[in-house]
Design a protein around this nucleic acid. Structure first.
Lengths: 114, 114
DNA sequence: GCAGACTAAAACGGAAGCGAAACAAAGCGA
DNA sequence: TCGCTTTGTTTCGCTTCCGTTTTAGTCTGC
């Protein structure tokens, strides 16, 4: 159970956003990041349909985000051989590293919140 | 001093992003949110030039973000009467409420992180 | 006063995201 | 087999953001 006050939350958010903006690696949209986090933190398998329902957005939103993040190497796609209509979204080393850095960044900024 | 583990940080991030995506009020870009948080959390006065230096982005980025958030009513602009080249960025009630909701949202999600 | 420095905004072309609708491929049920 | 559903992608027109460059207004030092 993680407990923090609203002021601490906003300060943490500011520090994290600031670090994100200053780092000039390409930053993801809110939707893209939500998808990436779901793929890596929720148990597989992940399908376009499943993610769309989970985030309550339309399927093209998922497809487009996967296109973009696929080019970035943060996720990869594979056909489901058991039901070839489905596409399974898979993790990549690069995506793991990306989220690892994000987690470390948040932890680091949290340490500086009084 | 706020202490959390990388796994907790990512889970918190996921929950917050998910809540943000599901809520269908217009979500801000990373840059816009960073600007908004700086305006509300850092001591005034805030100028375009100052914010650009603080975030390490170009001035048009700030101008455009202020345009967008101004239309949304989250910030307002006023000429500095002491040096009329400057524009002072000011807080609004609506902006305060927006960040209050954001803070509460993060606190709420944090409470569900094990 | 006036040239030069400074500040913010506007203009420009390009890239990327959006929702809605159309589409192709695969499974399913009679 | 042959419709019908399901799944993911593509297309369309539109909006928004991007970096760069240009413009307009304001100070400042001589």
């Amino acid at each position: 159970m993680l407990s923090l006050r609203p002021g601490q939350a906003l300060t943490l958010w500011q520090k994290a956003m600031l670090a994100q903006v200053r780092a000039d690696d390409p930053d993801l949209t809110t939707r893209q990041l939500a998808i990436l986090l779901s793929v890596y933190l929720d148990p597989p398998p992940h399908t376009v349909r499943g993610l769309a329902a989970h985030l309550r957005v339309t399927k093209p939103v998922i497809t487009r985000a996967l296109d973009t993040m696929g080019i970035m190497g943060l996720v990869s796609r594979r056909r489901d051989e058991r039901d070839r209509r489905n596409v399974l979204i898979q993790r990549t080393v690069k995506g793991s590293e990306y989220l690892e850095r994000l987690g470390d960044l948040v932890v680091k900024q949290a340490g500086e919140v009084s």
